[in-house]
């Protein structure tokens, strides 16, 4: 039987509203994925989804924990935040829907494509959200998705 051993684990804090450091965690993840030696196209979809999730905490929540487990043939990401939660998930997934305020839009964010892009980039996406408490995003990426 094949072993399912964790190669690398990363756990980092994300601070809401901190646009200077926003992207640090996903950038670090990209470096680690490159070191592990996954193909660039795989790394790209993992990192884009990670960055969208990281930015959602920075933009929409107060703080969060970003945890990744990297295996030989898959990557598991959990982003667990304390924040307002998402009242209507179906609406939130609609492309173009965004509650981002004007100063976020001026930065180029808030186009409302984040959640749908995370779904597109990942092989499995689950969101658990509680109003007034927070949101947990779980994503899995498989090196060979058809398996």
């Amino acid at each position: 039987m094949e072993e399912d051993k964790v190669l690398v684990e990363i756990e980092r804090e994300i601070v809401g509203g901190d646009f200077q450091s926003a992207g640090d965690v996903s950038g670090e993840l990209k470096k680690v994925l490159q070191q592990v030696g996954f193909p660039p196209s795989f790394n790209r979809r993992v990192v884009i989804a990670a960055y969208e999730a990281e930015m959602n905490v920075v933009i929409h929540a107060y703080r969060g924990i970003f945890a990744t487990e990297i295996y030989e043939d898959r990557v598991h990401i959990e982003v667990d935040d304390q924040g307002p939660g998402i009242p209507d998930l179906e609406l939130a997934f609609q492309e173009g829907y965004s509650t981002a305020p004007p100063h976020i839009r001026e930065m180029g964010f808030g186009a409302g494509y984040g959640l749908s892009n995370m779904k597109k980039c990942s092989d499995h996406l689950e969101i658990d959200t509680r109003i007034g408490e927070g949101t947990k995003v779980v994503m899995d990426f498989f090196l060979n998705p058809e398996k």
Partner: peptide, 21 residues
């Protein structure tokens, strides 16, 4: 978000935005 959703790898970006993001 459009850039993240619709560009391909190895592309060049033209933009009027200048922030670190």
């Amino acid at each position: 978000s459009d850039v993240l959703a619709f560009t391909k790898e190895n592309s060049v970006l033209l933009t009027g935005l200048t922030n670190p993001q």
